[in-house]
């Protein structure tokens, strides 16, 4: 019973995490120029770097999200999302340290502003979800 409940919970966590990344990726794919503008506001990358990341990162998010939703190579996708969220947290922390009060650009480009602190909190929750999946998967492995 406990094992069945745990399996269901793991599936829910996997699908929810996947949908979050799929949603985030699709919104950015739809408007890469606006996403490049949001990346530029972080003032970390050079001019072309903003466009390069805006062109490729959303696809990585969307593919990882899709893999998590369908459950194929889910462990690998969970690990990538974990690393991505770690990178996002570092970038957001740098904006706080530099006194930049910008929109995180996490989902809807040009939508309501999300502060760096809120975005970091959300990223920590997503990392916890990904780690839960990795831990479950490891326990199942011989």
């Amino acid at each position: 019973m406990t094992s069945t409940a745990g399996k269901h919970l793991s599936t829910i966590v996997r699908v929810v995490l996947g949908l979050v990344f799929l949603y985030a990726g699709i919104l950015k794919i739809a408007d890469p120029v606006a996403f490049a503008g949001n990346i530029a506001a972080y003032r970390i990358l050079p001019y072309f770097g903003n466009y390069l990341v805006a062109a490729t990162l959303p696809w990585l998010e969307a593919i990882c999200g899709l893999l998590l939703v369908i459950g194929w190579r889910a462990r690998t996708a969970a690990l990538i999302t974990c690393i991505l969220n770690g990178v996002f947290i570092v970038a957001l922390a740098s904006t706080i340290l530099r006194g930049l009060d910008i929109d995180c650009g996490c989902f809807q480009q040009g939508g309501d502003k999300t502060s760096a602190w809120s975005a970091m909190g959300r990223d920590i929750v997503l990392i916890a979800m990904a780690l839960t999946l990795l831990r479950k998967d490891r326990q199942r492995s011989p």
């Binding site: 466009y51 390069l52 062109a55 490729t56 696809w59 990585l60 593919i63 990882c64």
Partner: peptide
Amino acid sequence: GICLVAVAIGLVWNHQLL
């Protein structure tokens, strides 16, 4: 592999912008 596929699709999809 996943990263390479994502980067390749992103580069092709946004080639004009890039």
